[in-house]
Amino acid sequence: MSLRATARIAAGADGSLPVLESDGPLALRRTRAAVPGWARVTVVGAMSAPLGGDRLAIETEVRERARLRVDSAAATLALPGRTADPADYELRLRVGPDGVLRWLPEQLVSAHGSDLRVRTTVELAATARLVLREEQVLGRHGEPPGTLVSRLTVRRAGRPLLDQELAYGPGAPGGWDGGAVLAGHRATGQLLVVDPAYGAGPPAARPLGEHAVLTPLAGPAVLVTAVAPDALALRRVLDAALDELAPEPAGSGCTAQRIPHSGYGFGKETRVRNDEMAPLAKGSPEHVNT
């Protein structure tokens, strides 16, 4: 039994959420944003999906001058389904003039036997700002990874700014675990910061340790690319970069993802912190142990 679901978010300039539509396993909750003028949405329900054959999508629109933070209560766990078809997960993000989007979900964990295609498309107005993090963990603790193909396409003022696709796992073309691509690392991720204020002078390229790099793109944006042995080590690198490049707005209470270990999202701490959220779905999702 496979699912089709599309959840929708729209944020307005006054901190309102004129659209907040959950669908199927994608449950959206408005959560507390301590800074006035910001809206915050937490995706609470995706931890038991996507399964093979599912087609899930989240559409997010940040309207003119709106400020929105989107996060998730738990890691997203891609699991095998009853069908041999891959699962599709599509994220369509649009940020209007002077809008700000902080897209900071928890990890995507590619469980053994799963097959997931993720397509993230971002359309930015010329004056829009964006902070976007994506992290992929290859398998739960001690298991081989599933198959993941994840493409991230960002356009700014109609022009391409970043276009990348990562593929790994048994269904990916060969060489993904060789010395050019992952070389045995089991977590990989990116942090993208787009800010028109960078103008022609975004921060210069520099290594962040041995397995990560900060690179200015050919536009007002920087990308941090990292590989790591596990999810925790990856998050440490990306958190340090986030603190430096785009710290949380002052006074924001949106710090759930900074609590040690909450990155896996299956623990109690996430629920306790997000006391305004509905309880998580029933059942006991498998613990990610890295």
Binding site: R151, T153, D163, Q164, E165, L166, A167, G179, A180, V181, L182, A183, T188, A205, R206, P207, E210, H211, A212, V213, T215, T225, A226, V227
Partner: peptide, 18 residues
């Protein structure tokens, strides 16, 4: 057009250039 990428090539390119 394809956009397939290799994280380690991007990471090491900047180290190598230095």
């Amino acid at each position: 057009l394809p956009a397939a990428s290799a994280p380690l090539l991007d990471i090491t390119a900047e180290q190598h250039a230095a």
